[in-house]
Design a protein around this nucleic acid. Structure first.
Lengths: 338, 338
DNA sequence: TTGTACGCGTTATCAT
DNA sequence: ATGATAACGCGTACAA
């Protein structure tokens, strides 16, 4: 089923059919109707490859996700879903590439085969080979998260440094003097994962500003690790009365660990964090946290990318989000010294 | 950068370059090397649209996911990740469409625009408009899950009826006489979501076979709903001593609800389920469950779809999985009557 | 090894 | 003001 077939059955030329479709030229009403009827009857839709070939654009966005080996986190999933949704809203499709480093076949296919009009990258490292690779090409791209030197790229990110800092200040206001940061996994931090580094920086700054004693520990992204981590922490740093964390997947374990150790939240121990809302709300008691707006971030990323595709030569735009902390029930005044 | 440019710089014809690329004709070694060198220097990669147009296939698979409105479950995410991974393994790309019903723009684009060589559908209803729509077209497709009359389609599914039945038999073997099924959400079941219906059927059959008393309740897919659900259940059916469930997202809440009610698992109360392994392992105590192999299912779906694309006219293959129940720590002998 | 037709939709240009 | 013709985008594969 192609445009020539429609033209034949409607008794017009191929270009007329094309003009009926695009509306780029006026076509006499009777002709238009006749052509449209044949189109409807045969349920004709132009071949996307032919159109892309001619127009020089595919109406497809690429989305690079972390390889499935490391199970995607809830937040990453939120990004994927919201990107796809926002793209669909704009009649754009999304092509997925599961790629960790560069030199990845699917990544290379995506960016060199002119399959996509632009790329959204997530799970960005401070030094990221994929970003470097994309900068070599002329392909517009936007990152969710940012590299260490991201002034000349387009990105949307959460300001983990500020948010973790705010958590610390909130805890300090409540009288806590000994606080701990439960960071993301050691591997992730070692690999230069931005949020981990920036959260630590923000933590250290705030701790210094308030004259607190601060400890930071890495913790794998799952409940079991969270539980172990808390157990160890309570032994090695018994003076700690509050935790700040960006490790949402560890939260259930952190809660369990405290419970097992006989600490009641928030009476004996406080927790504040940066997490997706449903993690915060599912925590018992509900977690005081800055809720990461994953859904909006995906939508923003698509918006920035569309701009960039439309006008590639304007200076890159950024978006650094710091959602306010929602006071819930997991933080309270420091308990009297034992 | 196109094939003509490469040909010019290498001093050969376009077809020669094409043959060097595809290897479908032997090219003299010196020529081949010269061409290859130019290709490498210019980092040339054929235009995917042009190739798709000529070859009549895109090397892209479509994956239809539920719209993001209802947050994707962990298991759905597992499917997506494993499909993408398996496709990448076979040098295929994946195009995503977030579509609930039919008549969805992105769904229609995908299947009528010849953008994809085949489609994988998930979150299948017993009566599914998208399946009907796909059957009208000639496009090969595979479903994860199956409709009520799925003999002539290609699918891979988990045998929820059998697995929930096995849970019930296991609980009956331990002496439990009053068991409850915690199903997926009422909306999902009302919409004809297959697993919900089949789990209920399997539950009823097994309950009847063993002469037990059975109750079934629907429960939204989150922890809070699970907690409420258990609270209500313990009040309305105080005789119940065991739960079978396929609602993994409700598990943390179910655990909390039992704890609040003073029931210890597995001493006072048993739970068995069908869930992704990490949900089972994160449960306290670890959940006795049939672990849904989401990862393999995605890979199987891709495999079946590739077969179907290669040989569209063979009779459709199915794959009904019933993974064994892993005994963990959440089931035990029925407690003595109070 | 090369020339060339083909796949299909778009659009500039020419004809009516 | 409409409709028709033809070139173009790019890679593939058959005929020469």
């Amino acid at each position: 089923m192609n445009i020539g077939e429609i033209a034949r059955q409607a008794g017009v030329s191929r270009s007329t059919v094309s003009y009926v479709l695009s509306g780029r030229r006026t076509v006499s009403e009777p002709t238009r109707r006749r052509v449209q009827q044949v189109i409807d009857e045969l349920d004709y839709r132009p071949n996307a490859s032919a159109r892309a070939l001619k127009e020089g654009r595919t109406r497809v966005l690429g989305l690079v996700i972390p390889p499935a080996a490391q199970r995607l986190t809830d937040m990453q999933l939120g990004f994927v879903a919201s990107v796809v949704e926002a793209a669909a809203e704009a009649d754009l499709d999304v092509l997925l590439s599961p790629s960790g480093g560069d030199h990845d076949r699917s990544f290379e296919r995506m960016i060199t085969g002119r399959r996509v009009d632009g790329v959204i990258l997530m799970e960005i490292r401070l030094e990221d080979a994929r970003v470097a690779r994309l900068q070599q090409t002329r392909l517009p791209f936007v990152t969710i998260g940012r590299t260490a030197h991201a002034d000349d790229t387009c990105w949307v990110d959460v300001d983990y440094a500020t948010l973790i800092g705010r958590c610390v200040h909130h805890l300090a206001d409540l009288g806590h003097r000994h606080v701990a940061l439960v960071n993301r996994s050691a591997e992730l931090v070692a690999a230069g994962y931005g949020p981990g580094h920036r959260a630590l920086a923000g933590f250290n700054t705030a701790v210094a500003e308030r004259g607190l004693s601060g400890t930071d520990v890495c913790c794998a992204d799952d409940a079991a690790a969270g539980e172990q981590c808390v157990q160890r922490l309570l032994v090695t740093r018994p003076e700690v009365t509050a935790i700040a964390t960006l490790n949402e997947a560890a939260l259930p374990g952190i809660g369990r660990g405290l419970e097992r150790a006989g600490r009641t939240v928030p009476k004996d121990f406080s927790i504040a964090g940066v997490a997706a809302r449903h993690w915060a709300e599912d925590f018992r008691p509900p977690l005081t946290s800055a809720d990461v707006p994953a859904t909006q971030m995906g939508a923003h990323a698509v918006e920035l990318l569309r701009e960039r595709i439309a006008t590639p030569d304007t200076s890159p735009r950024h978006l650094l989000l710091s959602p306010p902390i929602s006071l819930r029930a997991s933080t309270g005044p420091v308990p009297p010294a034992r």
